[in-house]
Design a protein around this nucleic acid. Structure first.
Lengths: 148, 148
DNA sequence: TATTGTTATACTCTATAACTATA
DNA sequence: TATAGTTATAGAGTATAACAATA
């Protein structure tokens, strides 16, 4: 019964395979780093803030291809967890700059120590050459390209 | 200023690149097929239903790796749009089977006609060999593998 | 006038738990 | 007892529009 499902061309569609891969890595990541309570996006945001402590919210939102309004919510969640702090920019009173707290640095460090192993485990079906190829192809796809 | 953002290892992480790719194709798909009002997932669900009109909701949910409760909501949205119908199974009074309406078939047809062009446009940075390679690698990653 | 961040609003997707009808 | 589907609840993520403060 379960085996009689017809898939048609489902497996040929990038949209479907990318979505499946993204859901899988989301689950894998949150399970692997369960103690931190962070999602892949929250980790990425925390990581970029730690590298750019003087950057304002709009710039951070741009980096993560997210609207200002939605991105403010993401930052609010990180702030509620005590992982970042926000304060007014010294040079522009409209802007806020975020910085990672000591607790945030600790969480970040734990993920950075484990992330390579986590990603290798996630891509356990691939050998090293395939792993590098997949990452390179994803980067290439994600590069901005001319509108058709 | 915008250019001084430090990315660190962000571009090395599968989690970040898969998430970016999935967001990009979601935007591209919904823009390309704006007149249908469907998301990639809704299209995939509609497509699988059209191929498997006698399959119940639990089986459909399994195909799409979604919990029964959440999947019921997805079907409810398709039903509200008049693209599918649900009726009780003849063989199991607990179960429901979904089928695509005439309107649903029309929407599905429009997407299926354009999907190859849409996916080629989305992967405009890749040549044919790279495109096939990317899809093959995604399929391989998405294959179930042993727990470590 | 334009920009930064916020608030309000809305929709999709995800999950868990408890419920009902049936098997 | 177990299963199919629903409802209730919660949270993350996404987006648009309107607003106050500032540039």
């Amino acid at each position: 019964m379960e085996n009689s499902i017809k898939w048609g061309r489902t497996r040929d569609f990038f949209a479907a395979q990318l979505r499946a891969a993204q859901m899988n890595i989301y689950s894998h990541f949150t399970e692997w780093f369960d103690d931190t309570g962070l999602s892949p996006k929250q980790f990425a945001v925390l990581y970029v803030i730690s590298l750019n402590p003087e950057v304002n919210q709009r710039q951070l939102a741009n980096v993560h291809s997210t609207e200002r309004a939605a991105f403010g919510e993401t930052l609010a969640r990180l702030e509620e967890k005590g992982l970042i702090e926000r304060k007014a920019s010294k040079t522009d009173k409209r802007a806020k700059v975020a910085s990672v707290t000591a607790k945030g640095e600790d969480v970040l460090k734990r993920i950075l120590i484990g992330i390579d192993e986590q990603e290798r485990a996630f891509t356990a079906n691939l050998n090293d050459a395939e792993r590098h190829m997949l990452l390179a192809l994803l980067l290439k796809v994600n590069m901005p390209h001319r509108e058709s």
